[in-house]
Design a protein around this nucleic acid. Sequence first.
RNA 1: UGGGGCGUCGCCAAGUGGUAAGGCAGCGGACUUUGAAUCCGCCAUUCGUAGGUUCGAAUCCUUCCGCCCCAGCCA
Length: 562
Amino acid sequence: MSTEETTPSNFIRTIINDDLESGRFAGPIHTRFPPEPNGYLHIGHAKSICLNFGLAQDYPGGLANLRFDDTNPLKEEQEYIDAIIEDVRWLGFDWGDRLFYASDYFPKLYQYALKLIENGVAYVDDLTADEIREYRGTLTKPGKNSPYRDRTTAENLDLFHRMKVGEFKDGSRVLRAKIDMASPNINMRDPVLYRILHATHQRTGDDWCIYPMYDWAHGQSDSIEGITHSICTLEFEDHRPLYDWFIEQIGIFHPRQIEFARLSLTYTLMSKRKLLRLVQDGHVTGWDDPRMPTLSGFRRLGYTPQSIRTFADRIGVAKSNSTIDFSVLEHAIREDLNEHAPRAMAVLQPLKLVVENYPEEMVEEFEVKTHPQDRDDTETRVVPFSREIYIEQDDFMEDAPKKFFRLAPGREVRLMGAYYVTCNEVIKDDQGNVVELRCSYDPESRGGQSPDGRKVKGTLHWVSAKHAVAAEVRLYQPLFTKENPEDVEDGQDFTSNLNPNSIEVLPACMLEPSLAEAVPGRGYQFMRQGYFCLDSVDSTPEKLVFNRTVSLRDTWAKVNTK
RNA sequence: UGGGGCGUCGCCAAGUGGUAAGGCAGCGGACUUUGAAUCCGCCAUUCGUAGGUUCGAAUCCUUCCGCCCCAGCCA
C-alpha cells in the first residue's frame, strides 16, 4: 500500500463518529460484507468491500466479517463461494477467523420463528403464491388479511413443525409475520419468513426443507454477529422498518443499518443476473473474461488490487444515484502501473525497417533503464540492436503532416535508446502497401543523443528482427457501445448494445527479448502504447499472449481526429 | 391517487448558518530519449425552483419541479 491518500469524509463516517461519541454501542465498530454466492464479485461489490473493510481498518479496534447470505439453495453454488473468497483476499482484505454463513444460523432463526409464533405475531399461511400476491394489494391499495391469519398458536406451532419435518410439498405453505396488511410500506404487509423448498443446500445438505427468506435472515444474522453498522444499498431502505420490527419482537442486539448508493459505471453492466447471462449465452468466455467488470475479469485484464482500492476511495460514498465515468477507474490503474510497471519495447503491428549503412552481421547491446520514470531507480535491461528491426506501422506515414513527429520520407527520428535514423526509401507491395523502410543511421548518435546537439522531435520504440520474441496481443474496448448498456429500443435488451469490436487480437507482435521472461500477474508498460500483462489462462511459454490492461493517454490521437 | 429516498461544475463529491474543498474529464503552457509521466495555470458570484426566516442561507422553514426504489414463496 503505497500512496494512500486521506479518505474523504462521508455521511457514513459522520454517523459512526456520532455513534462513537454518544456511546450507542459498547465497543468498537463491527461491519460485514454479506454476498450471496450466486455469481462472481464485480467492481460494484468492490466498492462495498472497500467501504466495509476500510471502515473496520480505519477505526481503532474495528472488525469486519465476511458472511455468505446463503439462504436460497436453488441459486447458490460452492464455486461462487470459492471465487468470492479468492476475490476478497486478492483485493487485500482479511476477515481473520470470522468467515460466516447465514446457514450457520438456520437453527437459531428457527427458534426465533417459534418465538414469534408463540407471541402471536407469526402464522402459517396456506394461500398459494398467486393468492398471496392478490391479497397483498397494490402500491396504492391496502392488502387484506389472509383467511389463515388467525390460526391459534397451537395450530401454527404444529403446522410449522410439520413444515420443517417435510410433511408438505414445495410451495404449499409459508410462515408469515403478522404485522399490518394495510401498511403503506409493502414490506410490512405480512412478509413471508419461510418457504418450503425440498432442495439440497451446499452446506447444510438435506437438514432443512424450509429456508428463511433474505429479509428474515439478514438482520438477525447481523445481530447475531454483533454487527454495529449494517451497511447496505439504497433499495433496502424501506426494509429497515421490517428489520427493526424483527429485532424488537425477538429482543436481540440492534445493529444500525445505513444505506448508500450502489456503484454504476459508464459502459458497464452491474447486475449479476445479466452478467450471468453474458456468460451463459457465450457473449464472453466466462466470468473472468477480461471484458467482464468482475474482479476476476479485472484481475485477468491486469488491474491491481491497489488501483481498485484507490478507485473505491476516490468515488466516495453517498446516497444519490450516480454513474462514475470509466475514466476514473482508468486513471487509477494508470497511476499505479506508471509507478510500478517495468518498461519494455514491443511492436504490435510490425513494419520492417532496414538500416542500410549498418553492418550486416553486427549486433549491439544497449543497456536501458527499466524504470525511466523513476530518476533514482538504477535497474536496467539489455536490448539488442541489429540491421533489421521492426517499428510500429503507425509510426510511419508517407504523406505526413507537419505535426506528425514520427518517421516519414526524408525525416529523422530517434530509435529509443539506440540511434537516430533517417528514412531514405519506401518499399511497397503490388497493392501499394508499405512493406519496408530503408533508412540510414548516424553512428555518432549512439545511445540516442547526437554530439552536435541537434534535436529530433520523435522517439520510436523498436525491436531487433532477429532477436524478436513473437506474441499475440489482445486489445480491448468496452463491452458495450453505449454509456448506459440498458439504454435500448423497445423490445430489445442490453445484448443489442454489445460491442462487436470489444476484443481485437493482434497475432503477430514482436517483443524485445526481455519480455520472454515476463512474470504472470505482473504489469508491463509497452512504451508509448500502454500497460500489458500475460494472459493467465491462454498464455504459454511457447505462445505468449498479452492483454492490454489500459492504453497510455494519447494526446496525438486526440489532436489527429480534430 | 400509497410509502421510502435523492437533487452542489460535463461526471463524481466535500460542505451541517459565516460568505462554494478535492478528484476525473476538458482547455492552455513548461519540460521530456515514452505525443506517457511530471509541473504550472484555467475551469460553479453559485448550490433543482419559487418564496420566507436571518446582519448573513448550499446549509433553517414552506412551495413547486425532476429523478430513483418498493406490489418474489429472489437477494
